[in-house]
Amino acid sequence: MMNQAPQKLTVGIADMKMLQWDGELITFALGSCIGICLYDPNVKLAALIHIMLPINMEAGRKNTMKYADTGIRETIRQMEARGARKARLTAKIAGGAKMFEIAGGGNLGNIGQRNIESVRMNLRREGIRIVSENVGGTVARTLSFFPATGQGQIRAYGQPLIVL
């Protein structure tokens, strides 16, 4: 087989992509959204989900990757179909920031916090351990995830690179 240059896949909003062995998964500008990295080290299969909201209450539940609950569940299913084992999966999460400080803004600024809680709860329900996280705060994050090592990287405006 020919050697190919490592792939770099961009994960959009309400989107999920998987890569195995090497390459890079990247999702840009996570504000209140959360990037969830799921990883099976035995088969070096990595998935990155970019969710926007905590719970899927849509009729028909079509857009699975927009929500923490259906996004996590569907991603586990697709990873298992590619040879991953749920018992081996670990998670790293980043995002859930509050971009604007609004006095009396109701639940507007709390979407990030609600996302964080929903992601943690859904991962716990699936029995997946969060090995590293960088969540909350007030800054946007760009998240990279590398299947070769299972390592994540976070870039934020005006801050040094963070290893996740």
């Binding site: 504000g31 959204c33 926007m52 405006y157």
Partner: peptide
């Protein structure tokens, strides 16, 4: 901050 994150505020809402 990053404009993508600013624009997702009305999207998420």
């Amino acid at each position: 901050d990053m404009q993508g994150a600013i624009l997702t505020v009305p999207m998420a809402e």
